[in-house]
Design a protein around this nucleic acid. Structure first.
Lengths: 342, 342
DNA sequence: GTGAAAGCGCTAACAC
DNA sequence: GTGTTAGCGCTTTCAC
């Protein structure tokens, strides 16, 4: 650390011109070349760099955007954060990481805290949503973009994870599996509810050529919870495939299968969701439904960027969506039970 | 979004008291109970929330701390970020995520940009360091804590990854391995250089009971680079163990071994470093040297918190350290070549 | 094209 | 204990 920094007024004095001219010269707005030259020199000599706080107070813009999720350690959210940062940084925006907490109430608090004006906008991906949260977001003093679920009058980036589960079920039927289990996470979360709908729809559909379908619910979207739920599910019935609601649960299911001496994909085919790196690296590598985490992050960042720019409140809410797609890997490979060494 | 927010002056008018009293009442500093009551009511009616920018300008504190790394997607940095956030948030500090870029020059730019005063402090974990960066950090207008390498006159949290590699080598010798390879990342990075030193020291040490030791260098600390380096290393010689400079490289090495029909740990024992979740989930689960990523994040956050609090520049630089420790898992299990199903 | 001056919202002297 | 006032650093009218 060192002595306190130079201010604009000092640069002005040093250059022997007015404060206003100094500001203009530094911004290149309506100043003569001579003036610009003079001010630049003075600024350089003093090692001047503009104060973000003074600027923010005057302009009523912080050049900051918040990204809030329940668990920033989750690979899906990390991908979103990275993508958001990549979009915003080149536009001069900083990214502030915040936590929604686990409950709707804490998420509402987070949204209300935007009233303190420390960011120009928010990208949030709430695990749980209700009317109070939707209303809080509509009343928020800065633009908010929701990743996860489209809500009336709110900018959002959604994906169809129900259809994604449908993709997984269809794939399993296609490779000849008939007795399909589903390991879901908590039903009171947005993704949990959607994925359950997807599984129920896919297996109740007239086109469902399977013989059996049943669900087991894990306490959380983690490997450990998936292992436990997988044990319960596999103990109950004679299945030849399991759809898991995300990659971590899928890994848990593969483990549970291993405990029973079942091979994957030989005895049991397993699919995940989110197409995470951890699923790609896992052996057997996971067939997974990509929900385009990075892409959703990018889109959300662009939406919020449009709003914070200037013309805000004019355009109606925009609902954006990213389609799911299946990535087939070893965990549902149709080949023989003997996995080739590649 | 809605109408613009209430200011302190409006609360003051509403309560029929002065601006100063309003501020004091809201902060609970030297105001009568009656005053507090009155002001609170007025604030509530107006839905007042204090403006962070005005506050920051006046107090010369932003209540923000930056965390900067080259790649926020790296699991190690994610753990640090999570830990830092957990320490700072309860103290009312927000965390701003920034990028150091890949080069020393871009990191220096980042440090210089702190002159804009948008954060009260910085926690940075640079991949590469030199004197210009060290000097820039010493001159920085806000407290900086470095995670990774201790530098003169700079607060830092380091770990001894060289000793960590020593732990891995010792473990391999202990389980009877004698011909040991090392897959390192780029040597011009702080971790790459340290880990090479560690391997060279461990294998040159008089206590080294092995017969052979050789190094192959990967282009990057990733799975793909590890796969390629692993292929080169295994093609060259007859090894019974490989030490990898991090978990991702280790996964690449296990893959390369698989391609050659080598079993892990039967034919080849493999160790990683960083003790990441991905290494724990991988099959075979990775024996890994933990460098306490979360703990380093926590310590760094506490250091920066001490500095931003108040008394700054008084205390000398503090060098803090977290010791490495080995976590043994399947990839070096001594048992038979047949891996038990648990 | 340049300068003078107002004022963003807040806290902290300083008087009373 | 309360009120008055200055001023943090900046951008932007407004006059010239």
């Amino acid at each position: 650390m060192s002595s306190s920094r130079a201010t604009l007024i000092q640069v002005a004095r040093r250059a022997g011109v007015s404060l206003a001219s100094t500001s203009r010269a530094l911004h290149g707005t309506g100043a003569s070349p001579a003036m610009v030259e003079r001010v630049r020199a003075a600024a350089a000599e003093l090692g001047y760099s503009p104060d973000a706080t003074g600027r923010s107070l005057r302009m009523k813009r912080t050049f900051q955007v918040a990204f809030a999720v329940a668990d920033i350690g989750n690979p899906v959210y990390v991908e979103m954060l990275t993508a958001i940062h990549e979009v915003l940084a080149p536009h001069g925006y900083r990214v502030v990481v915040m936590s929604t907490g686990q409950t709707v109430a804490s998420t509402v608090d987070l949204v209300r805290s935007l009233g303190s004006g420390f960011v120009d906008g928010l990208v949030v991906s709430p695990l749980r949503t209700d009317d109070t949260l939707a209303e809080a977001i509509r009343q928020a003093p800065v633009p908010v973009v929701v990743i996860g679920r489209s809500l009336d009058g709110i900018d959002s980036v959604s994906t169809d994870s129900a259809a994604g589960i449908g993709l997984a079920v269809a794939h399993l039927l296609e490779i000849g599996r008939r007795r399909i289990g589903f390991v879901n996470g908590p039903l009171d979360t947005t993704p949990g509810a959607a994925r359950q709908r997807g599984f129920d729809a896919a297996t109740a559909h007239p086109g469902f050529t399977g013989e059996h379908a049943e669900t087991e619910r894990a306490d959380d979207f983690t490997v450990t919870a998936g292992l436990e739920a997988g044990r319960r599910l596999l103990a109950r019935g004679d299945l030849d495939a399991v759809v898991a609601a995300n990659d971590l649960l899928a890994i848990g299911v593969v483990r549970a299968a291993g405990e029973l001496g079942l091979t994957v994909p030989g005895d049991l085919a397993v699919t995940g969701m989110d197409d995470t790196e951890i699923g790609q690296v896992f052996r057997p590598s996971l067939t997974s439904v990509s929900l385009g985490s990075a892409e959703r992050g990018r889109l959300a960042a662009r939406l919020v960027l449009d709003r914070v720019g200037d013309g805000d409140g004019v355009d109606p809410a925009r609902q954006s969506a990213v389609g799911p797609h299946l990535v087939v890997r070893e965990s549902t490979a149709v080949a023989s039970k003997e996995k080739s060494a590649r």
